[in-house]
Design a protein around this nucleic acid. Structure first.
Lengths: 216, 216
DNA sequence: CGCTTGAGTTAGAAGCTATAACTAAAATGA
DNA sequence: TCATTTTAGTTATAGCTTCTAACTCAAGCG
């Protein structure tokens, strides 16, 4: 990062920025993104209100920054898991661990969208990184061949999202299935929709991962 | 419903309540639940601010009411689709139609949870109705038998959520898969995570439904 | 006809984001 | 070393929000 400025003022500045973000994460973890209050953060940091505007353009800007960091963190987690060579199941476990570590961070990426809000442009690049790591793992693991269907032939012509990754449609298909299915179980678990149902979320999760690994 | 009171005062009251909720839905559709403003609703209805407190205990109470209605609407949609006899794919199509009709309504049920907030107790009953309808459809459709795995044997002992539905573990398993997988694709589509990726969300959705119908 | 109930009002407290104007201290350059 | 510029943080204030309190006035009912 180009943030290693020896400039003492810059150092102080970036440290305060980090403290603000740290308090913001705490607040989000306990109150959700909608409950994030600049005033409360300022008070916790011992400074009063409008001082934060020296560091962030406003509440939206701060949240945008947190979204960016959440994306970055997820992409790093995916990359590390992909490079670890533990396959799809390793990637899945890493994803679940990352999500459970801070559910609200997960929801900052995959949660309810605010109709007007557009994620910052660089998050789409990070999202590509995530898909790239996922495609790497999917390509390395050859599952029981499933018969090509409508989706596969559709993906053969619509794989812009895969960048220049040299993966056949069957792999693209599996990557999408991995993404959507694990998001399905995970987000329901994190949102608490399984609580009170009696079964163990992790068992369901691993079953879904196994089904994915057994090729479809 | 016990709301058919001939009492003129009651009639007026419930009509205003309905108008408030209607405006609230409009606002939620365009600004999300976090952007819902009682003042704005009151202004739109030609009355000033605190008048709304005659009809709802406050903002949270209004939102809770909307959540309740969203659950009810989804349960009715599931029940109707189940009774229509169009099978799992019919149920899936109905679910997607319901979600696309008003994405923010979907997110009111399945979106980012507010850490402190607890859904009203009667929604858990409605959630049971939804699962019951889903189980009915799953039980009626016998798929290619898959070999019992860890999840199935776990569900054999942990099926409290299925109420007294006489469904074997394999059916419970499929119902959970239906729920989590379709939520996975749907919520990502609704949140806009597919936009700019190039492929058609509906093709992905139907492929996922087909995979589900082909037993696993 | 009189009393009670309740819908809607204005006033105001407490909170929020955000802007403007100001102070004080630190870094910088001649 | 001293003057200038930069900038962190302050208070004050506008404009929004939810929500409570006190009041008015009209509709319904015995």
């Amino acid at each position: 990062m180009a943030a290693g400025a020896a400039n003492p003022r810059e150092r102080y500045r970036s440290q305060v920025r980090a403290e603000i973000k740290s308090k913001a994460w705490e607040q989000i973890a306990t109150s959700g993104a909608s409950g994030l209050s600049l005033n409360a953060i300022a008070k916790e940091l011992g400074m009063s209100g409008p001082a934060l505007y020296r560091y962030f353009d406003g509440r939206d800007d701060l949240i945008t920054e947190l979204v960016r960091d959440a994306y970055r963190s997820l992409a790093d987690t995916f990359r590390a898991a992909a490079d670890a060579g533990s396959g799809l199941s390793g990637l899945a476990r890493a994803m679940r661990r990352w999500a459970l570590e801070d559910p609200q961070r997960y929801f900052l990426v995959y949660g309810t969208p605010v109709p007007g809000y557009r994620a910052p442009d660089d998050t789409t690049a990070t999202a590509r990184e995530i898909m790239a790591a996922l495609l790497d793992v999917c390509a390395a693991e050859q599952p029981r061949a499933a018969s090509p269907d409508a989706l596969e032939s559709h993906l053969a012509d619509h794989h812009g999202w895969a960048g220049d990754h040299p993966a056949p449609p069957s792999v693209l298909r599996r990557a999408l299935a991995f993404w959507t299915r694990l998001h399905g179980v995970l987000s329901l678990e994190l949102a608490g929709h399984f609580t009170g149902m009696g079964f163990d979320p992790e068992t369901l999760f691993t079953a879904e991962v196994n089904a994915l690994a057994d090729g479809e």
